[in-house]
């Protein structure tokens, strides 16, 4: 494109665009000035005052928490059967196969009669998720043939130590840990 055509095109563009007039305020001083100083301030204050009766909107995290959507994919949970208390996970490693971040490690073992851990022939002797690598895609949940693993709603997993982010089976079976005390009702 030559320089000329460029300007020609730019020019025709400028022609077709509405030119916005700048609205200028009253000149400083005089009545206009006084109105600007108080009137506009009061108008602003009106908004402030009207919100004041709504009460504060700030969520006092971590004492208070934002609710999440039902399908939010937070920290994983391993589940047990409610009736028998056995672990649903049979250590099949399908979740590990599905995981795109390769952050699940399963080492299975055979159930001993009388000391059953899961309902199948095998159970997960080691089940670890490295949450510092997890991308919370939920593929593990989809892969699991027994609904043994689901993504929970817990998103508070920050830690000072990376090694603490490797969640073991016991941690995943337990309810999420309460990291910070929530404000009690009457506080």
């Amino acid at each position: 494109m030559s320089e000329q055509t460029f300007y020609r095109q730019a020019g025709s563009y400028l022609d077709s665009v509405d030119v916005v007039e700048v609205q200028r305020g009253p000149e400083p001083g005089g009545v206009g000035g006084a109105y600007r100083a108080f009137g506009e301030t009061l108008r602003g204050l009106k908004t402030t005052m009207s919100r004041l009766i709504e009460g504060p909107l700030t969520i006092e995290y971590p004492e208070e928490k934002t609710p999440v959507y039902p399908r939010f994919r937070g920290r994983h949970k391993l589940h047990r059967f409610e009736d028998t208390g056995l672990e649903k996970c049979v250590g099949c490693s399908l979740c590990a196969a599905a995981c795109p971040a390769d952050c699940i490690r399963v080492v299975a073992a055979e159930n001993i009669p009388g000391e059953r851990v899961s309902s199948g022939e095998r159970y997960a002797a080691v089940y670890e998720i490295n949450l510092s690598r997890c991308i919370f895609c939920g593929y593990c949940e989809i892969a699991c043939p027994f609904d043994a693993i689901t993504m929970g709603h817990d998103y508070e997993m920050a830690d000072y130590d990376r090694t603490n982010l490797i969640f073991t089976k016991e941690m995943l079976l337990a309810e999420p840990i309460e990291r910070t005390p929530l404000k009690s009702e009457d506080e």
């Binding site: 250590g91 490693s93 590990a96 080492v107 299975a108």
Partner: peptide, 9 residues
């Protein structure tokens, strides 16, 4: 070898 590993492990 029972349950020691899966082919992807």
């Amino acid at each position: 070898y029972r349950f020691r590993a899966r082919p992807w492990d």
